[in-house]
Structures are given as structure tokens and as C-alpha cells.
Simulated assay, not measured.
Amino acid sequence: MGTTDNTGQSDFQPVFENRVRFAETDQQGIVFYGEYFTFQDEAVSQLFRDIDYDYDRMHEDGWQVHVANTELNYRNAAEFGDVIVNELRVAEIGTASFTVDYRAKRAADDQLLVDGSVTHVAVDLETERPTRVPDAFREGVTAFQGGLPDS
């Protein structure tokens, strides 16, 4: 279960680690910037599994998520072979959307590599229209990080 910092905001939680593969690097020998969007997406997918609300359960409950916005800020470079710790926290849950803050750090020295966020909109599977984020999802987030963010 997560804790909160002195502002009341939930702390980042590590959700998975990955070792940088050669195919994820560019000609300069560092992680190609676009790969971090994939890492961010995998971190969010792992969050869904960690709160026991994966994509299969979403579909069973009649909804899915669409990405509305994503942003990353590049702070430091990672290279082939580096282990990256991918962390996140749910920063906001609205009626039909939620925003997840993301950051990636190098495991060897805890150096911040990137930070940013991704906003998902809950969408009804049949109508393709925004729908309310289910209470069970909110409850999973509460258990994961020790409370809901202030929305």
C-alpha cells in the first residue's frame, strides 16, 4: 500500500523494472526518446494488473480506456544495459477520466531519467462515449496507493 507525502499526494510506487535492450537505443547509444512512451504504457498496464482491474476485467464490465493526453520530460539519458525502475501514482480521478503521473529512474544510481503523465478517458464499449470510472477501479487505486487523489 502506498503512502502520502507532506502535501497529501500519494508517493510514486515502483511497478516494474526493465533492462534497456540494444533495439531500444539510438545511434547515440542512448534510449530513443519514443521508447519511454512504451515504458510509460507498460507501467500503466502493470498498475491495472496490480489493482486487479486489467483490460479483461474492464471489458467484462463494459468499458475501456482511451489515451487523451501524454507528456514526458527528459531529464537524463539511459544506455544499453541500464536497469530502469518505472514508477507511477494516480494523480487525479475525475468522473470519466484519470491521470497517472509517471517517472523512470536508473536503478544503479536512482537518477531521474524522465517524468510526465498520461490521461485516460473511460469509454463505454458499446457507445464509444465517455462513461463514469467505476467504483471498483477507484477502490483498487485506493488500496494501491493508500487513498484516492484529491480530484
Results as ranks from 00 to 15, higher is better:
residue 52 D to V: 02
residue 62 G to D: 03
residue 61 D to C: 05
residue 42 E to G: 05
residue 69 N to V: 01
residue 70 T to G: 07
residue 79 E to C: 11
residue 46 Q to S: 10
residue 60 E to W: 01
residue 48 F to L: 03
residue 58 M to T: 02
residue 48 F to P: 00
residue 67 V to F: 03
residue 44 V to E: 10
residue 65 V to A: 12
residue 67 V to C: 11
residue 46 Q to F: 14
residue 72 L to E: 06
residue 57 R to I: 15
residue 80 F to G: 03
residue 46 Q to D: 10
residue 55 Y to F: 11
residue 43 A to R: 05
residue 43 A to L: 08
residue 65 V to M: 11
residue 75 R to L: 08
residue 50 D to Q: 15
residue 56 D to H: 00
residue 44 V to K: 08
residue 68 A to C: 03
residue 67 V to S: 09
residue 56 D to A: 02
residue 71 E to I: 04
residue 49 R to P: 01
residue 47 L to P: 15
residue 50 D to M: 15
residue 51 I to D: 06
residue 75 R to A: 06
residue 43 A to F: 08
residue 69 N to F: 01
residue 77 A to P: 01
residue 68 A to T: 04
residue 51 I to Q: 04
residue 76 N to D: 14
residue 55 Y to W: 09
residue 46 Q to P: 13
residue 55 Y to M: 07
residue 45 S to R: 14
residue 59 H to V: 07
residue 50 D to W: 15
residue 79 E to M: 11
residue 67 V to I: 11
residue 76 N to Y: 09
residue 54 D to G: 08
residue 42 E to Y: 13
residue 71 E to P: 15
residue 77 A to R: 06
residue 62 G to M: 02
residue 76 N to P: 09
residue 68 A to R: 10
residue 65 V to C: 13
residue 45 S to G: 13
residue 60 E to I: 03
residue 61 D to I: 03
residue 70 T to H: 04
residue 62 G to N: 03
residue 75 R to K: 12
residue 58 M to H: 01
residue 45 S to E: 14
residue 63 W to L: 00
residue 76 N to L: 14
residue 72 L to F: 07
residue 41 D to S: 13
residue 71 E to M: 06
residue 79 E to R: 14
residue 68 A to F: 04
residue 65 V to G: 14
residue 81 G to C: 06
residue 79 E to I: 12
residue 73 N to H: 14
residue 65 V to H: 09
residue 59 H to D: 05
residue 60 E to H: 04
residue 45 S to I: 11
residue 81 G to K: 07
residue 68 A to I: 02
residue 75 R to N: 07
residue 78 A to Q: 05
residue 74 Y to P: 06
residue 52 D to S: 06
residue 81 G to N: 10
residue 60 E to A: 08
residue 47 L to Q: 15
residue 81 G to E: 09
residue 77 A to Q: 08
residue 77 A to F: 08
residue 66 H to A: 12
residue 78 A to K: 06
residue 63 W to R: 00
residue 80 F to S: 04
residue 67 V to E: 07
residue 58 M to A: 01
residue 66 H to E: 11
residue 62 G to S: 03
residue 42 E to V: 13
residue 60 E to Q: 07
residue 54 D to Y: 09
residue 76 N to Q: 14
residue 78 A to V: 05
residue 46 Q to C: 12
residue 80 F to I: 08
residue 61 D to G: 07
residue 46 Q to W: 15
residue 75 R to P: 05
residue 60 E to C: 01
residue 80 F to K: 10
residue 73 N to K: 11
residue 63 W to Y: 00
residue 62 G to K: 02
residue 49 R to N: 11
residue 80 F to V: 08
residue 52 D to R: 05
residue 43 A to D: 06
residue 73 N to I: 08
residue 73 N to F: 13
residue 81 G to W: 11
residue 82 D to L: 00
residue 74 Y to H: 05
residue 61 D to A: 04
residue 64 Q to W: 04
residue 54 D to C: 04
residue 62 G to H: 04
residue 73 N to M: 09
residue 82 D to V: 01
residue 74 Y to S: 02
residue 72 L to W: 07
residue 79 E to G: 10
residue 71 E to T: 11
residue 81 G to D: 12
residue 43 A to G: 09
